[in-house]
């Protein structure tokens, strides 16, 4: 059985002249126990989607279900079963760690003791500070408390809206390790993020842009569907190199990618033809190598295609 089904979901805001379309008919399914990533930039529609699935917002069109329950008709039942961690810290700043956790447990007619096992790994890291007010916590500690509160009623589906935005690389890694271990306990997890590199940590991902899904696949599957030859190129003057590459007839797209430039080639071209081209243009020993696409390359390619349509 699918844990979450979205079927042609639509949402727009504003009136007549000033309409913003947040979701343009989104469909996907998430299997039980899956760690499913919604990957896309700000404004793609991730939060609208999460708010509809957690019954906090009504869709303008389409249907959706969570745990087999309809998000419109069965909203009360869904609220009992889902955990939701919004993008903005939404706990009570003037309650302590312990009071916040108790409060959320009580709302859901349960106790911290009853479900302590589920949150133990995460909560034990902040438990030594349990008398500290939530408003006085560091970013990392707030995140752990929010996650504990979202889990304390033992939800079957957990929605995490951009839990790692603005978080540094070290804390991001730690957060994903927590998610992997939660997944082992059988909870379905939907997590949204603007960081493309986090896609590889999910079982499957939906790439989303401008209210539309570009692709739903496993991270491997997304990468395998990148068909064009791709090379990475480096030289001492990177700015000039990019300009020169963009003038090469075999280039479909060229863009900076950290230390290298990534060059998407038309069919029939390869690293060798790029090397030859550069040598003809007075590059002595350009560093050119064939590489595998990563998620960001795929996202850029998919954005280009959907932009041209």
């Amino acid at each position: 059985m699918y844990s979450v089904i979205a079927n042609n979901l639509k949402k727009q805001y504003g009136k007549k002249k000033d309409v913003v379309t947040a979701l343009k008919g989104i469909s996907f399914e998430v299997e039980q126990g899956e760690l499913f990533g919604i990957i896309g930039p700000d404004g793609a529609g991730k939060t609208s989607l999460f708010r509809i699935l957690t019954t906090l917002l009504l869709p303008d069109g389409g249907t959706a279900s969570v745990d087999g329950l309809d998000v419109v008709k069965d909203f009360k039942a869904i609220r009992q079963r889902v955990g939701y961690m919004p993008g903005r810290f939404s706990l009570y700043q003037d309650l302590t760690i312990e009071e916040n956790l108790d409060f959320f447990a009580t709302i859901f007619n349960t106790t911290v003791k009853e479900n302590y096992d589920l949150i133990k790994d995460i909560y034990s890291q902040i438990e030594p500070f349990k008398d500290r007010r939530a408003g006085k916590l560091s970013g990392g500690m707030k995140q752990k408390l929010a996650l504990s509160c979202a889990l304390i009623h033992k939800p079957s589906v957990l929605f995490l809206d951009e839990p790692t935005t603005g978080v540094d690389a070290v804390s991001r890694k730690e957060f994903w390790e927590m998610l992997r271990s939660l997944k082992k306990q059988g909870i379905t997890i939907l997590v949204s993020t603007p960081y493309m590199d986090e896609a590889s940590l999910c079982d499957r991902v939906a790439l989303i842009q401008n209210g539309e899904i570009l692709s739903v696949n496993s991270p491997e599957g997304v990468i395998n569907s990148f068909r064009q030859p791709l090379v990475a190129v480096k030289d001492s003057n990177m700015l000039q190199l990019l300009n020169d590459l963009q003038n090469f007839e075999g280039v479909q797209n060229a863009y900076p990618f950290g230390e290298y430039h990534h060059v998407v080639l038309k069919d029939g071209y390869s690293a060798n033809t790029v090397s030859d081209f550069l040598q003809q243009h007075n590059y002595h020993q350009p560093d050119v190598k064939t590489i595998r696409a990563d998620i960001e390359d795929c996202f850029i390619a998919l954005m280009k295609v959907s932009g041209e349509l």
Binding site: G40, P41, T165, M196, Q209, I300, M303, K304
Partner: peptide, 20 residues
């Protein structure tokens, strides 16, 4: 201060082009 947080990968690169 984190000018490109949450920005899509294409625009992020256009932004860096402006920085250059």
């Amino acid at each position: 201060d984190e000018p490109t947080g949450g920005v899509d990968p294409v625009t992020r690169r256009e932004f860096w082009n402006m920085i250059y």
